[in-house]
Amino acid sequence: MKVTTQSVNFNAESTLLDFIQNRMNKLDLFYDRTIGADVFLKVINTSEKENKIAELKLHVPGDVFVVKKKCKTFEEAVDSACGSLERKLVKKKTKPTVLHPPKIS
């Protein structure tokens, strides 16, 4: 899967980028028709310990899933967001496609 990562207000290290790529690749196990993903990493300048935000946009045919998580580390935020995406993908995969019935006049 093609994953585009953007970091806001900091430069992401290669180990973090590798972690994100590997974690996003695991989503293919739940739904094999994924097109790509955009990952936005942000640091908020506050006194809180949970000041790191990961926003994931997963592109699948006919839909885009967006998940945003705020945690102490980017790894934790990405892992938590991927867990939410896994549940959404399983739900999409098991949900039958709805065809609109013809209109009766």
Rank of each mutant, 00 (worst) to 15 (best):
I53C: 04
N51F: 01
N22E: 14
E55T: 13
L27R: 01
H59C: 12
V60P: 04
C71E: 15
V66E: 12
K68E: 12
N11G: 04
V43F: 02
K95P: 04
P96S: 07
S14M: 11
Y31Q: 03
L17M: 14
K103V: 08
D28Y: 08
F10G: 01
T97C: 10
L41I: 00
R87L: 06
Q6T: 11
Y31A: 00
I53N: 01
K92R: 07
H59A: 13
Y31G: 05
S84D: 15
S14I: 12
K69F: 06
K68Q: 12
G83L: 11
V98Y: 09
L27F: 00
L29V: 14
K49E: 10
L56M: 12
V39Y: 11
K72Q: 11
V60N: 08
E86R: 07
E48K: 08
L17E: 10
F40N: 15
F65A: 05
T4W: 08
L99I: 12
V78L: 02
L56C: 14
L27N: 11
L16P: 03
F40A: 15
K92M: 05
A77S: 03
S84K: 15
K91G: 01
K88A: 10
V67I: 15
E48Q: 05
Q6V: 08
E13T: 02
A54D: 00
V64W: 10
N11T: 08
